[in-house]
Simulated assay, not measured.
Amino acid sequence: MALTLVLSNLVLAVFGFTLITGLPANILAFYTFFKKVHQRSTPMDVLLLSLTISDLIFLFFLPFRMVEAANMKWTLPYFLCPLSGFIFYSTIYNSTFHLTAISVERYLGVAFPIKYKLKRDPRNAVIASVIFWVMSMGHCSIVYIIQYYNSTNVNFTAPYMRNTCYDEFSREQLDILLPFRLELFIVLFLMPFLICCFCYIKFILILSNLPSINAKKRYRAIGMALGTLLVFIICFLPYNVSHVVGYVQNKSPDWRVQALLPSTFNACLDPFIFYFSSSALRETFRNILQKLSRKFLQPCCRSALCCHLLDCSSTEEKTQSTTESSVEQHKLGRRV
């Protein structure tokens, strides 16, 4: 569909917000998981690292789509059109596979803690990640097939001669694309979503019946499970429903662009799921916040007025005051 001014601004706003918030968060997550994998890796760390790499690749290619939205047409070299589309869709479906694998790993760790702990091997997670990348990229290679498909209709303008990208398909292209999109919905979304629902529902039920687990850890784990399910529903469901609607209507829906927008939010929501899943990432976040607070808050507190308003006296002064107070109380106790 042709981009209107309103839709162009909406796409730019969504893509820009995703890029600004998602890029630093995923870089931080990549640093954390890369360091963790080299020190002492677990299957969860491998899966999270692979998912972070997928999100970073998605974010690096997002500016190409932003240029298209800003110009309301494709003005970049044509070879970037199928390449950016291939990366765009591959990383979206790669995320569904990885989030599903994380749910399976979480469920097995709670349902069969002893057996699974004995069989946990990071190499299995590496193999699974490679399979996910191959399956998502193999399926989404349809972008290249459709973009370079030679139509027999002499009145149909070849894609590379137009100023649109992965749009305005011929009848022959749609006869190939629409059934394939239905297969994408079933294999790359519906099956992972059902597996994820089963694992996290069982995961929540098991945690709810284990009173020995710390309440804070239990709520954090349940929050991670519910957050992942919400990501599936909010980010991936609308776009994949358009596949089914397009197959039923035998045409590409006009609202596919709007349905695709929530999928981009996944790249900036994943780090928040990582926060609940990884203690290493939580520790990294805390360290950075502490460094930022020392860098920006302490200079401010040198002002007497600011120190009075914020009550942010230095740690040394507070420690000294506490020590002096304790000594005085001790002396008073001895006198009494």
Score class of each variant (00 low, 15 high):
Lys73Ile: 01
Phe64Gly: 02
Val126Met: 12
Phe58Thr: 03
Pro43Thr: 05
Ala101Asp: 11
Gly109Val: 08
Thr52Gly: 01
Pro77Met: 08
Pro63Tyr: 01
Pro82Asp: 02
Val104Asn: 01
Arg123His: 10
Leu51Thr: 05
Leu49Met: 15
Pro113Ile: 11
Ile102Glu: 07
Val110Cys: 14
Gly85Ser: 03
Pro43Cys: 03
Ser90Cys: 07
Leu47His: 02
Leu118Gln: 15
Ser103Phe: 07
Tyr116Ile: 02
Val46Asn: 00
Thr75Trp: 05
Phe58Ser: 11
Val67Arg: 06
Ile87Cys: 00
Leu99Ser: 06
Met66Ser: 11
Phe86Gln: 01
Leu83Val: 12
Leu51Ala: 07
Leu83Ser: 04
Met72Ala: 06
Phe58Asn: 08
Thr75Val: 12
Ile127Tyr: 14
Arg120Lys: 15
Ile53Gly: 00
Leu51Tyr: 01
Leu118Thr: 10
Leu51Gly: 05
Pro122Ser: 06
Phe61Ala: 10
Gly85Met: 07
Ile57His: 05
Val104Gln: 02
Pro77Thr: 14
Val110Trp: 10
Ser54Thr: 04
Tyr93Ile: 06
Phe86Lys: 01
Thr91Arg: 12
Ile57Thr: 12
Leu59Ser: 06
Lys115Gly: 10
Leu99His: 07
Val110Gln: 15
Phe60Glu: 06
Thr91Gly: 08
Phe58Gln: 06
Ala125Gly: 06
Phe79Leu: 13
Thr75Met: 14
Arg120Val: 04
Gly109Glu: 12
Leu108Met: 12
Arg120Gly: 09
Tyr78Glu: 11
Leu80Glu: 05
Val110Asp: 11
Ala111Thr: 11
Thr100Glu: 08
Ser50Glu: 01
Ile87Ala: 01
Gly109Asn: 12
Met72Asp: 00
Phe112Gly: 09
Pro113His: 14
Ser84Pro: 00
Phe79Asn: 03
Pro77Val: 06
Asp45Gln: 05
Trp74Thr: 06
Val126Ser: 09
Phe86Ser: 01
Leu48Ser: 05
Val110Leu: 15
Leu47Gln: 04
Asp55Met: 10
Phe60Met: 11
Leu99Ala: 12
Arg65Lys: 15
Phe97Cys: 09
Gly85Thr: 01
Ile127Glu: 06
Glu68Asp: 13
Pro113Ser: 14
Ala111Gln: 12
Met66Gln: 05
Phe86Asp: 01
Arg120Thr: 12
Ile114Arg: 13
Pro113Asp: 10
Val104Trp: 03
Ile53Leu: 08
Leu83Trp: 10
Leu62Cys: 03
Ile87Gly: 00
Asn124Gln: 10
Gly109Phe: 15
Thr96Leu: 03
Pro122Lys: 04
Lys117Ala: 13
Leu62Tyr: 02
Asp45Trp: 00
Ile127Pro: 08
Asn94Ile: 09
Phe88Glu: 01
Gly109Pro: 10
Val110Pro: 14
Thr100Cys: 15
Ile53Lys: 00
Val126Asp: 05
Tyr116Gly: 01
Leu49Glu: 04
Ala125Met: 04
Phe61Ser: 11
Leu62Ala: 03
Thr75Ala: 11
Gly85Tyr: 01
Phe60Asp: 00
Ser84Asn: 09
Ile57Phe: 12
Lys115Ile: 12
Arg123Ser: 11
Pro122Asp: 09
Thr75Gln: 07
Ile57Lys: 05
Leu56Met: 13
Asn124Gly: 09
